[in-house]
Design a protein around this nucleic acid. Structure first.
Length: 975
RNA sequence: GCUGGCGUAGCAAAGUUUGGCCAAAUGCGACGGACUCAAGAUCCGUUCUCGUAGGAGUUCCCAGGUUCAAAUCCUGGCGCCAGCACCA
């Protein structure tokens, strides 16, 4: 698209800013609407996918603004945590991609060097976000803009945590954190901002079982299946490996070097001397719980890195142990195999067919699986892996224990019980490990470390949780599927670490400043802070004045407040807060369903009384690349356009319409340039149409119109309905519905009106006045452009139509439906008719049929079952029908009585009002020219059924029903 | 694995909560036509199959079931997507 389009959009954006339309003012007595979107983290540059949710928020805000509400729509940026640190690191390394994009944003060398500082980088990125938002036409209150690393925001967070502590929502307990030995705590997640690889790793918990050696030391075996301790035949160590002593709680244990290190990190204790694993071979170790003595053997099966590097062998249930034993010499193997105990049953009925196949044959489960999968030896790792996983899964899901003391118990339950018993009686320990290696960006291997005094937000606290659940019932949550899902999410919600130690941005924890508040925890109650921030940015409050006492007074209405702030000012801030709160809507992407939204509600519930708690949440889904989340690579690779190119090509309005119309907000939409281009074209078409409707002097007030023609009355009615539908859609945050009605249906109605010969200039102008306001929330620039110079003031500030501006004429709607039905009938006939058709004769139902149909309807309504006998009886009793009783049975066959009865019972609304035969006749006569031109007929003539003079060789006229005339086609060359 | 979501015509997407006016809206694409020097612009029409009378047949992932009636409710299966913990 052209430069002109961009200039035009920019011009309107400047105009809105100049008029401060986005800046909210507390106006007691006037309804308000406060909304936020989950502020973006300052991690990089925005792409077209991000903008979907933000424009949704803007569309909703604009609708409410036009409804006459005082809209508070602030935004900030989330700079806490590692993203900005990583970003500035890329700048420091002069990462080519990053530098290139920064150059496009106009960064010179001097700016680049300042961006090596994470704080500067965060603010710089925030600036680019605002630029993009404004270029997309978002109308927000920038006077409230704040970054989470700003000193005033940090004052606010300090207060929040002191308050949470006072309310008893913070607890201290041990925690196992993922830590890089060099860089400090890191987050292990697939986005891998901190990591080189291993982002998908999960933490698995092993039970470490101590086996007593004759010398009093313990060999520590790590296992994921502690319940199989009852079937241990031997222990495995890696050939040639070295074991390290580790002492803890007065005992000396042996594990590999890596294993001992894990124990040190996670449990404590001390490391001691080394022992060659080979020196233990053939030693007998005493198993915990059972007291059985089992030999230590070497096998290449063991990886010294995994677990404790010592493995217990359960050949009956572990395919790897079974295979490993086969490799041992017969004199070692056979006695051990003889001791391999089967510990559980797999009831045939509970197994899936594939599992039955797996366990076919004889012998212990592990042996069967090895056989049916065809594992050759320990080197056959792929198949061995498969066998292990499948046995593990099947036994976990279906296994029933047969071991003494656990008979009949499910494996899942037995596992937990055995582990607990072993811990209690035999001193078993827990060892945590990643399911795959996790490597830090700095190259170090990430470890799991016990933090003994971690602070948590007590989200698992049942009392707090139940208050949150109770509040959810008062919220409007979109889409409803998420509302249904939320209670389940809360059930699963546990205490969350609230602070961390690391080199990232954030607020020092007020109770212990060695800690920094964790990034999710510092972004839960922030919508409240936007209110205060406006006073800070206008310099009416200083950072030093934002003391806990100040916030207690402003947010909780408690205490005298901060002594350095004038009471009147504090009252003003408090008044603003009470005006703009509660928050009406919080929008966020689907990734927030389990991350941001639950803590958001938790914190509001903790800090505010019921009437100030949030009223709504809207979750939106993403724009995706090829079935995957959009990434920077997609933008780089050209699979998705950059923000600049998108705006150049389709304009802000084109993009906004695309976002709204491409799919429901609660569904991912795969990026498709074609769809986007069509949205842009459609926007242009709507602009053209609007410009043709709106003439100078158009008013927002629609004067009463004198509408007499059918087309006018129909168009007026249908336009009024469209307004109502759009309103309803916006009220339900159904942006797609609103877009569809206002951008697809309304133009279609307009086309139809014009095709019907509609040309009432006053009506068209009124329709334009309404329509331009309907489209304004979605495509605001276009709306302004269309109304510019033709209507008073900005559309953005104009009142949103209510739906009562245009008069509705039910009979005109009914008549139009009647015509549509006739068109369908004619089309259907013509379709089946192969030879040329010249004329159409229309027979309007005889007068008595109208009487009869009314009677029929009421007869069906009164009785439930369509009983032909009683219907006839009712009809017979009507005087007007007496002369036609002979024709009644044939007429009655035209109706599907059963269907009519069901329809009448189901709908409370009156059936379409019947027109009198005279009215019907005139309707058809008036439509005749339209119909003949539409279907290319030479002539269309209309007769009453009673008109004996009209030729009707096939006797079609009897088919006529009120509102649905009989048709007779004449063969002949068409015109 | 656990939790949640989804599966509708060539494609996208309504409809499913509250079974029946559902051969299934709407948009795109395709095809035909009109207008044009020409169109990627606009307008009209067709787009599951059959039909010389306004209708019939077969469809809404698959297989069963409930019902007078199922895209819609129930059971089972298959397939796809997301989240799974400190990452906003």
């Amino acid at each position: 698209m052209t430069e002109e389009l961009q200039d035009r959009e920019r011009r309107w954006q400047e105009r809105w800013r100049a008029d401060a339309l986005g800046v909210a003012k507390a106006q007691p007595g006037r309804p308000k609407f406060s909304l936020v979107f989950a502020y973006p983290g300052t991690s990089g540059f925005m792409h077209v996918g991000h903008m979907r949710g933000y424009t949704f928020a803007d569309m909703i805000a604009r609708y409410h603004r036009m409804k006459g509400e005082e809209v508070f729509f602030p935004a900030g940026t989330h700079a806490s945590g590692l993203p900005s640190v990583v970003f500035s690191g890329k700048v420091a390394k002069r990462d080519p991609d990053t530098i290139e994009t920064l150059r496009q944003w106009g960064a010179d060398d001097a700016t680049l060097s300042t961006l090596e500082d994470p704080t500067h980088a965060a603010h710089f990125l925030a600036g680019t976000y605002w630029t993009v938002w404004e270029r997309f036409g978002l109308l927000m209150d920038r006077t409230a803009d704040v970054a989470t690393i700003d000193p005033d925001y940090q004052q606010f967070i300090r207060w929040q945590f002191l308050r949470l502590q006072k309310l008893g929502h913070l607890v201290q307990k041990p925690y196992f954190a993922s830590v890089c030995p060099r860089s400090g705590p890191v987050s292990v997640d697939p986005s891998e901002t901190d990591l080189d690889r291993g982002g998908n790793a999960e933490i698995v918990t092993y039970t470490a079982l101590p086996f007593r050696l004759p010398d009093g030391r313990f060999l520590l075996c790590a296992t994921l299946r502690p319940e199989t301790v009852y079937g241990v035949t031997n222990l495995w160590v890696a050939p040639g490996s070295t074991l390290r002593e580790w002492t803890h709680g007065g005992r000396t244990y042996l594990a590999t070097e890596e294993g001992a290190q894990k124990l040190l990190d996670q449990v404590g204790g001390e490391k001691g001397g080394t022992v060659a694993a080979s020196s233990l071979v053939q030693a007998l170790a005493e198993a915990p719980l059972t007291g059985e003595k089992v030999p230590v053997l070497e096998s290449r099966l063991v990886d010294p890195q995994v677990g404790t590097g010592v493995v217990m062998s359960v050949p009956a249930h572990a395919p790897a142990d079974w295979v490993a034993l086969q490799e041992a010499p017969p004199e070692v193997r056979d006695p051990l195999l003889a001791r391999a105990k089967v510990l559980l049953e797999l009831p045939e009925a509970s197994l899936a067919p594939s599992e039955r196949e797996l366990f076919k044959g004889e012998g212990p489960p592990a042996a069967r699986a090895v056989r049916s999968i065809g594992v050759r030896d320990l080197a056959d790792t792929e198949k061995l892996q498969e066998a292990t996983e499948r046995v593990y899964r099947a036994e976990h899901a279906h296994g029933v224990m047969t071991v003494l003391g656990h008979e009949g118990e499910g494996v899942e339950k037995a596992r937990v019980r055995v582990a607990a018993t072993a811990t209690e009686r035999a001193g078993a320990l827990e060892v945590r490990e990643f399911s795959e290696p996790v490597i830090c960006r700095c190259g170090e291997k990430i470890i799991i470390k016990r933090v003994p005094d971690q602070w948590f937000l007590a989200y698992g606290n049942p009392e707090w949780k139940s208050r949150v659940k109770a509040h959810l019932a008062h919220m409007k949550i979109y889409p409803p599927e998420y509302a249904a899902e939320l209670p389940g999410i809360l059930d699963w919600f546990e205490d969350r670490p609230a602070v961390r130690q690391g080199k990232w941005l954030g607020t020092p924890f007020p109770l212990d400043t060695r800690w920094i508040i964790e990034p999710i925890a510092d972004s839960t109650f922030y919508p409240a802070y936007y209110v205060v921030r406006r006073f800070v940015s206008s310099k009416r409050l200083s950072v030093e004045q934002l003391t806990p006492e100040f916030f207690d007074r402003v947010f909780a209405g408690e205490g005298d407040g901060e002594s350095s702030v004038p009471t009147a000012l504090m009252d003003e801030v408090r008044r603003d807060f009470l005006y703009f709160y509660p928050l009406d809507l919080n929008l966020g992407g689907k990734e927030h369903k389990r991350v941001h939204f639950p803590p958001f509600v938790y914190n509001h519930v903790a800090l505010l009384p019921p009437d100030l708690r949030p009223k709504g949440i809207l979750v939106y889904w993403w724009i995706t690349g090829h079935k995957a989340k959009l990434s920077k690579k997609d933008v780089k690779g050209g699979a998705v356009p950059s923000v600049d190119r998108a705006l150049e090509t389709w304009g802000a309005d084109g993009m906004r319409l695309y976002y709204a119309i491409a799919s429901t907000s609660s569904q991912d939409v795969e990026w498709d340039e074609g769809t986007c281009a069509r949205a842009g074209d459609r926007a242009q078409e709507v602009l053209r149409l609007l410009q043709s409707l709106l003439v100078p002097g158009t008013s927002w007030e629609i004067p009463p119109l004198d509408l007499t023609s059918h087309a006018d009355r129909w168009f007026s009615s249908t336009m009024a309905q469209a307004v109502l539908r759009v309103r309803e859609a916006y009220e339900a945050n159904d942006l797609r519905g609103a877009a569809e009605t206002s951008f697809v249906e309304v133009p279609a109605m307009l086309r139809k009106y014009r095709a019907r010969g509609g040309e009432n200039a006053v009506l068209l102008q009124a329709a334009g006045s309404l329509w331009v306001r309907l489209v304004s929330p979605i495509t605001p620039h276009l709306a302004e452009e269309a109304a510019s110079g033709r209507a008073p003031g900005l559309v953005t500030g104009a009142p949103f139509p209510k739906g009562d501006e245009l008069q509705s004429f039910p009979e005109a709607v009914a008549r139009e439906e009647m015509i549509d039905r006739l068109e369908e009938d004619i089309a259907s006939l013509l379709k089946a008719w192969k030879s040329p058709v010249s004329d159409l004769r229309v027979f309007v139902a005889a007068k008595w049929k109208g009487v009869a149909e009314s009677a029929l309807r009421s007869a069906l309504k009164a009785g439930t079952a369509p009983d032909l006998g009683s219907v006839m009886k009712a009809l017979r009793s009507i005087d007007a029908l007496k002369p036609h009783l002979g024709e009644v049975p044939a007429w009655l066959k035209l109706y599907d009585l059963r269907e009519m009865a069901a329809a009448a019972a189901a709908s409370s609304t009156e059936p379409v009002p019947l027109l009198s035969p005279g009215e019907e006749l005139s309707t058809w006569r008036a439509s005749a020219p339209y119909l003949s031109s539409k279907f290319g007929l030479k002539g269309v003539d209309v007769h009453p059924e009673e008109d004996a003079g009209a030729a009707d060789p096939k006797g079609r006229r009897h088919r006529a029903r009120p509102g649905r005339p009989a048709l007779f086609l004449t063969e002949g060359p068409s015109s």
